[in-house]
Computed example of a mutant assay.
Amino acid sequence: MKVIRKKEFTAQHAWGALDIANMNGITTRLHWTNEPYKWHINDGEEVFVVLDGSVEMRYKEQGQEKSAQLNVGDIFYASMGTEHVAHPQGEARILVVESEGSV
């Protein structure tokens, strides 16, 4: 049993994570960041939930770059093969559910 208070979690570096659970190879992690990630394609599907802050999610569809502004409670689903990068505006805390070992 765990109780996690998102506002109390801060990592030592951007995209530092607190591992919450690993259920049959699917991980749930709480990330803290104040810097963009990198363009990447996950090894599987990804669910990205903004818990605190605001994030501009940039992604590519048919080679064209697009973007979506994500605020608290918003969810971004990256299907297999979706190239994307998260750009937080200030500090953000994000819940990520993805295959274990994914980028």
Rank of each mutant, 00 (worst) to 15 (best):
R93D: 06
E100K: 14
K66M: 04
V85S: 07
T33W: 08
L95W: 01
W15V: 04
N22W: 00
M80G: 10
K7M: 06
I41D: 01
K66E: 05
E98R: 13
M1Y: 00
D52H: 05
T82Y: 02
R58I: 01
A21T: 14
G63L: 06
W39A: 09
Q69Y: 01
D52R: 06
T28C: 11
I41H: 03
G16M: 00
E46W: 01
Q12L: 11
I4Q: 04
E91Q: 11
K6D: 03
A11Q: 12
T28R: 04
I94W: 08
V103H: 04
E56P: 04
L51R: 06
A21H: 10
K60T: 06
I75M: 13
G25V: 04
V96D: 01
R58E: 11
M80W: 06
G81W: 01
L51Y: 00
K38T: 02
P36Y: 00
L95M: 11
Q12M: 07
D43E: 12
V103I: 12
H84S: 06
E56C: 05
A21N: 13
R5M: 02
Q64P: 04
P88S: 02
F48I: 11
R5Q: 08
P36N: 01
E91F: 02
M80S: 13
G73V: 07
I20D: 08
R58N: 12
K7H: 09
G90R: 03
L70C: 10
D74P: 14
E91H: 11
M23R: 11
T82A: 09
I41S: 03
D52G: 01
R29A: 13
A78C: 09
T27N: 11
V49M: 09
G63N: 07
G101K: 08
G81A: 00
S102V: 00
P88W: 01
V3T: 07
Y37I: 03
E61G: 02
V3C: 03
I26E: 08
A11C: 11
E46L: 01
N24K: 08
D74V: 06
F9V: 04
I26A: 05
D19F: 07
G63R: 05
N34T: 04
H84T: 03
L30Y: 05
M57D: 04
V72F: 06
V49K: 03
K6V: 07
V72E: 15
G63V: 04
A17M: 12
Y37Q: 03
E100V: 09
G25S: 08
Y37G: 14
I4C: 05
L51A: 06
P36A: 02
A68M: 10
N42D: 15
H31Y: 13
Q12S: 13
E65S: 03
W39T: 09
N24I: 01
N42H: 15
D52I: 01
K7V: 06
V72C: 08
H40P: 12
R5P: 00
